[in-house]
């Protein structure tokens, strides 16, 4: 089976899951902004504790967190190393032309914590929000841009349709790969050229079927009088709930704690 997870959504019913996606996006932006203006080590500690607490509250396991950090591990390590060795200041240790300074250690640790917090917090958003809800939230947040003639609705529609068809096409690809394997096709051996060539028997039928599906979908939308750009209502209207108010309060308390730490 082809294993394609769209987004990384993990089902759940935690407070994080129940919070409106729009609220989560806005709070995430504020969180990131705050993260880059803090200076005091105590603030970093508060960030670490807050982010860990959120992760635990969302019922997100250690494994899922590691999975979202893993693809970015080289960036984290690279940033830490650069800061560690190339920050000017009082050298603590030095050999040959390389020196480790107190300022370097300080900056390397801070940058690592920043990146980790940022990655984990943004994964919390995608881990606790289904992709379609996320698309709807982005549409809702960007809707003021529609006044500037930005086709927000169309873009959101395109995004939802894309998300909707990823699993369908993945399943189809899986079936075609199996069918061609049954005819002795050999994938993933030989040089780059022969490997690329071996994909033709999979890509051709996949493209043809994708175009067919697109055409069918367009016809079906026409048949139901879809008009591009017309205002539409939703089956599930997103309304702010007490859970969102609580999320807001929690964030304000957190921001206040950070501010206090900075001013101390």
């Amino acid at each position: 089976m082809v294993d394609i997870l769209i987004g990384q959504y993990l089902t759940g019913s935690s407070a994080l899951h129940r919070t409106d996606a729009r609220v989560k996006i806005i709070l995430l932006i504020l969180y990131a902004a705050l993260l880059f203006i803090i200076k005091n080590p105590l603030s970093y500690a508060i960030f670490l504790i807050f982010t860990t607490a959120l992760t635990m509250m969302g019922g997100i396991g250690f494994k899922a967190v590691m999975k979202s950090i893993k693809p970015l591990r080289w960036i984290i390590i690279f940033t830490a190393v650069i800061n560690l060795f190339f920050t000017k200041g009082e050298p603590l240790l030095s050999f040959w032309k390389i020196a480790i300074t107190a300022e370097g250690i300080d900056l390397a640790v801070k940058m690592t914590v920043r990146l980790l917090c940022l990655i984990v917090a943004s994964s919390l958003l995608t881990l606790t929000t289904p992709p379609l809800t996320l698309t709807n939230a982005i549409e809702s947040l960007l809707s003021p841009l529609a006044k500037l003639k930005v086709p927000v609705r169309e873009l959101a529609m395109m995004m939802s349709i894309t998300l909707r068809f990823i699993p369908v096409l993945a399943e189809e690809a899986d079936r075609i790969i199996k069918a061609q394997t049954a005819r002795g096709a050999d994938f993933g051996s030989g040089g780059i050229i022969s490997r690329a060539k071996s994909l033709v028997p999979v890509m051709m039928p996949l493209f043809i079927s994708a175009f067919k599906r697109a055409e069918d979908l367009a016809t079906a939308m026409d048949a139901r009088c879809f008009i591009s750009g017309a205002p539409r209502t939703k089956l599930h209207e997103e309304k702010l709930t007490p859970a969102d108010a609580r999320a807001g309060v929690v964030f304000v308390v957190f921001a206040a704690a950070v501010a206090a730490a900075e001013l101390l």
Binding site: A182, V200, P201, V202, P205, S209
Partner: peptide, 9 residues
Amino acid sequence: FQYPEQQLF
């Protein structure tokens, strides 16, 4: 396979 014509390429 079922609908084998879908695998013609």
